[in-house]
Simulated assay, not measured.
Amino acid sequence: MKKLLALILFCSFATLALAQKDVDFDNGPSFKERIFFGGGLGFSGSNQQTNISLSPIVGYMITQQWSAGVGVTYQYIKLKNYDISDNLWGGNVFTRYSINQFFAQAEYDYINFDSNLLDDQDERDSATRFLLGGGISQPLGNRGAVNLLAMYDLTYGNDSPYDSPWVFRVYFSF
């Protein structure tokens, strides 16, 4: 069950996207110009499972290179072979520092899930993790980019619902 949950959570977080935009910091941008929105939307399905996720975020550009923000996560999973489903929800707080096309990112994630999904008992549990890593961003015009990110869970242990301490993401930002 742990491995299945880990795979599902990894797939949902792989869709996370952070918005990035050009702001003229030389002329003192307003609070509104520093705010950005973004997020991810994911869907995967097979003859064994369906996974739908939504991960909106809002952030603030502290400087041209440094930003921070918060996000929420909702995910619906259905395991067709067992005729069961679950609604997962959570959130995250992140900070990111960019140097040219490279960036470093720190993130704290929280997720709530049904810990006894296969036992047909409605017992909720939660998991947290603290991720550190970096990536590269390839710009697509003034506001868009394709981003590759690798992060490591510093709190990973034997009781983690995830199979691996590594998180890899490919996402678009606008």
Rank of each mutant, 00 (worst) to 15 (best):
M1W: 10
K2L: 08
K3S: 09
L4F: 11
L4T: 06
L5K: 06
A6C: 12
T15H: 03
A19I: 05
D22Y: 13
V23G: 12
D24G: 09
D26T: 14
G28C: 09
G28K: 15
P29F: 10
F31I: 15
K32T: 07
F36P: 04
G40I: 08
L41G: 13
L41S: 11
G45Y: 08
Q49C: 05
I52K: 02
I52Y: 05
V58C: 15
V58Q: 10
T63F: 09
Q65G: 03
Q65V: 13
Q65A: 13
V70D: 01
Y76N: 09
I77L: 12
I77S: 05
L79I: 08
D83R: 06
L88K: 02
G90T: 01
G91A: 13
N92C: 01
Y97I: 04
F103A: 03
Y108I: 09
Y108M: 11
D109S: 02
Y110T: 03
N112G: 04
S115H: 15
S115D: 01
N116H: 05
L117A: 09
L118G: 09
D119H: 15
D120Q: 02
D120N: 12
Q121A: 06
D125G: 04
L132A: 11
L132K: 14
G134S: 03
N142R: 11
N142H: 12
A145D: 10
A145Q: 15
A145G: 06
A150L: 10
M151A: 08
L154H: 08
G157W: 00
S160G: 07
P165H: 06
V167G: 02
V167R: 12
R169E: 00
R169F: 04
Y171I: 00
F174N: 05
